[in-house]
Lab assay of single mutants.
Amino acid sequence: NLAEVVERVLTFLPAKALLRVACVCRLWRECVRRVLRTHR
């Protein structure tokens, strides 16, 4: 699944970079939201 791969990669990025990549597309924005939720 593409979303799972994107989420896996996003887990390695710092928070500032996550906010930046959330603007790329809807899929990435949803993935960033899930990554941020799991880090809390």
Rank of each mutant, 00 (worst) to 15 (best):
T38P: 08
A3L: 09
R33F: 04
C31K: 13
V5M: 11
L10G: 05
V5L: 11
L27I: 12
R20K: 13
A22W: 02
A15H: 11
W28R: 01
L2K: 03
C31I: 13
C25E: 12
V6G: 02
L19W: 05
V32H: 00
L27K: 14
L36Q: 08
A15M: 08
V35R: 05
K16E: 04
V9S: 01
L18Y: 08
L2I: 11
E30D: 14
R26D: 03
E4C: 06
K16I: 00
L19G: 14
V24Q: 03
A22Y: 03
L27G: 11
V5H: 02
L18V: 08
N1C: 01
T38C: 13
R37S: 09
L19A: 15
T11H: 11
P14S: 15
C31D: 00
C23M: 14
V9N: 00
K16H: 03
C31M: 15
P14I: 06
R34D: 01
L27S: 11
C31A: 12
W28E: 00
R33M: 07
R26F: 00
R33K: 11
R37N: 07
R34Y: 04
F12H: 14
V9Y: 03
L36Y: 06
L27Y: 10
R37V: 05
L18N: 02
R26N: 03
V35A: 08
L10M: 12
E4W: 10
E7C: 11
V9E: 00
K16Q: 12
A3P: 02
V24L: 09
L19D: 11
L18Q: 12
R20F: 13
V32D: 00
R20I: 12
A3F: 14
H39T: 15
R40I: 10
V21H: 03
V9M: 13
V24N: 08
C23D: 12
A17G: 10
V24Y: 02
R8S: 03
E4S: 14
V35T: 04
E7Q: 11
H39S: 12
P14M: 06
E30F: 13
C31V: 11
V32E: 00
E30K: 14
L2C: 04
L2G: 00
C25K: 14
P14R: 15
R29V: 04
A17M: 14
L19C: 07
R26G: 01
L13E: 01
C31Y: 11
A17Y: 13
R40L: 10
L10D: 00
H39E: 10
R20A: 14
E4K: 14
K16R: 13
L2W: 12
E30V: 07
V5A: 07
T38M: 14
N1F: 03
L13P: 02
V6I: 14
C25Y: 10
A15R: 14
V21D: 03
V5F: 06
C23K: 15
C23E: 14
W28H: 01
A3G: 11
A3N: 09
N1W: 01
V6Y: 06
T38R: 13
W28I: 15
R33I: 04
V21K: 12
V5S: 04
L13R: 05
P14T: 13
A17V: 13
H39K: 13
V35M: 10
L2H: 00
V6M: 13
A17D: 05
R26L: 00
V9C: 05
C31W: 11
L27W: 15
R34K: 12
A3S: 10
